[in-house]
């Protein structure tokens, strides 16, 4: 299932579509994504700390958007020389 999820994600499929296609609850797809992220095949995209960390907070209207979803992106990976040094 893990590899199927990765393949579908790389193909641009969303969580709902994958859950329907693999006939598993959405929570299981998200869980598989978390495991893939732990392994380094997906990247958890940080949405930043918006205004809190901004040095210009005192002069800006302090109206940063609060993004509540979690965002992932497949990591470009190739066997024998991919993204990280820990990879083969």
């Amino acid at each position: 299932m893990l590899e199927k999820v990765l393949k579908l994600l790389e193909g641009g499929k969303g969580i709902d579509e994958i859950a329907r296609e693999l006939r598993v609850p959405k929570e299981e797809v998200v869980g598989a994504m978390e495991v893939l992220a732990d392994l380094g095949y997906l990247e958890r995209v940080e949405s930043g700390d918006s205004c809190a960390a901004c040095p210009l907070k005192s002069v800006c209207p302090g109206s940063c958007f609060r993004f509540k979803g979690r965002v992932y992106q497949p990591v470009d990976f190739r066997l024998g020389g991919g993204k990280g040094t820990f990879k083969p």
């Binding site: 995209v45 940080e46 949405s47 930043g48 918006s50 205004c51 960390a53 901004c54 210009l56 800006c60 209207p61 302090g62 109206s63 940063c64 958007f65 993004f67 965002v71 992106q73």
Partner: peptide, 24 residues
């Protein structure tokens, strides 16, 4: 690029932290 989406969404609030968020 996919990841530029978050900085652009942040820009609706304020462009400054949005520009800084491009660090991701």
């Amino acid at each position: 690029p996919g990841k530029s989406f978050i900085p652009l969404v942040l820009a609706f609030g304020c462009n400054v932290p949005a520009v800084m968020a491009t660090r991701t």
